[in-house]
Amino acid sequence: MTDYFTFFGLPRQLELDEGELQKKFYELSRKYHPDRFARATPREQQEALEATSVLNDGYRVLRNPVQRAEYVLKQDGFDIGEQRSKDVPPELLEEVFELNEQLEELRSGDAEAAGPLRQSRDRFLGLLDDVDGELNQRFREHDAASESGARRAVLAKVRGVLNRRKYIRNLVNEVEKELSAH
């Protein structure tokens, strides 16, 4: 598997200059895109197709901070399975409990639960912002770490933040689905 950072000629960092990434993406597109090889040999066409699919897949992963972090975690042998995001982060237990009650009320036909549910959702959206702030903080720590042991320690924390983020994201999605259905 081609390493996306190498392919884009970018340093292996979690914080990434999006403008720079886009510039590289356009540059490499001009170089490899199948349109440039419409009259080349079948072999060259196939190579262009392969290179461009790596380029596009890589761009999609690298430009999204969450996917980028997951990519680095996976490469470093971390398990980023789905099941982890199902565990309620302990500090959220109480609020999640309350939210589930409101959801239950709405599902059982109590339209008045919608108001408090919206408030809860907004609170969780606020939490999501906090999590993103924390993620950025960890990204900087990771990129600053010069020694691989320290780097891995930060990555473990990044994984924790990502799991929390995924948990909250799913929760908000569920609430929004329920709100739009009622």
């Binding site: 199948p34 197709l49 461009t52 699919s53 790596v54 596009n56 897949d57 761009y59 999609r60």
Partner: peptide, 8 residues
């Protein structure tokens, strides 16, 4: 809305 060529 994935840019093509794209693969998985």
């Amino acid at each position: 809305n994935s840019t093509i060529p794209a693969s998985a």
